[in-house]
């Protein structure tokens, strides 16, 4: 009886080893798929940028949208944006109205009379610099990528302009630069970051509604922002690993 049991367990052992070995082999075949989930936290000492936007502080002046257009040569026409501001208005009957005339640059016209407004607020939008970014996942050639410090960048000298990444971005943060035919997006002002300067949108924000910082540094303002506020990300159900944290995000915001 005992012997039998031993045999059985040995057989089990070989069986299990076989399964594990087969599984490993199969997993290695699938390794291209792994990359979609592995960009997060590779070396924990490196900087890993995150962004915080405070909806309570945003006054909808769209200085960020203007500064971004000037700093990054975002085409004024036709009407693309790396950074823009939306005004959400929820009426007493629960209807959601959103507007962003010229990305907020042209100011807002409130069509809802004040007595019928249940609540209203501004939502500044920009690239979420996702850690599991769907846009870099789908680039067929490797022309867009997450930089070692967690910024989603584009290589305009390599982009083929297939627009698959534009389709894959759930937040509408990508567009095709009409003169180049290649994709363009927020770089978190990578050229400024690397010289120790704040991104243009953060520099010009008059109310300090925007901040960024190293998510791996527990003492950074960024980490404190996440810790001290109830923050949320856009479309969390899509599991994009968004590193853009909003304070006071309403569920109506998409």
């Amino acid at each position: 009886m005992v012997k039998e049991n031993k045999d059985f367990s040995r057989r089990e052992f070989f069986k299990k080893t076989g399964v594990i070995a087969g599984g490993v082999l199969f997993a290695s075949l699938l390794s291209p798929l792994k990359a979609a989930q592995s960009t997060e936290k590779s070396k924990s000492d490196d900087t890993w940028y995150g962004i915080g936007l405070d909806i309570e502080k945003c006054i909808g002046c769209a200085s960020c949208a203007r500064a971004c257009k000037a700093e990054n040569d975002v085409p004024k026409e036709p009407f693309f944006f790396r950074s823009w501001v939306e005004q959400y208005t929820i009426t007493n009957s629960g209807e959601v109205k959103v507007q962003s005339p010229n990305g907020g640059i042209d100011g807002y016209k409130q069509p809802v009379p004040e007595s019928e407004i249940f609540k209203t607020f501004f939502v500044p939008k920009m690239c979420n610099h996702c850690s599991k970014s769907p846009c870099t996942q789908v680039c067929p050639v490797g022309a867009t990528f997450v930089s070692p410090d967690g910024v989603v960048l584009v290589d305009p000298n390599y982009c083929v302009g297939c627009r698959y990444c534009v389709q894959a971005c759930p937040y509408g943060c990508r567009y095709i630069k009409p003169d180049l035919g290649t994709v363009d997006k927020c770089t978190l002002c990578y050229h400024r970051l690397k010289k120790g300067m704040d991104p243009a949108c953060m520099m010009v924000c008059p109310t300090g509604a925007r901040l960024y910082g190293n998510l791996r540094d527990p003492k950074s303002e960024m980490v404190k922002f996440i810790k001290n506020h109830t923050v949320g990300a856009l479309k969390p159900n899509l599991n994009t690993g968004s590193k853009l944290y909003y304070n006071a995000l309403s569920q109506e915001v998409h």
Binding site: A67, F145, L153, N157, T187, H191, R192
Partner: peptide, 21 residues
């Protein structure tokens, strides 16, 4: 560094700054 042109990082860094310190 990954599945992209390493030089692209530098090219992104080297863009001109317009909003000054």
């Amino acid at each position: 560094y990954g599945h992209y042109r390493g030089a692209a990082l530098k090219e992104n860094e080297d863009r001109p700054i317009k909003y000054v310190n």
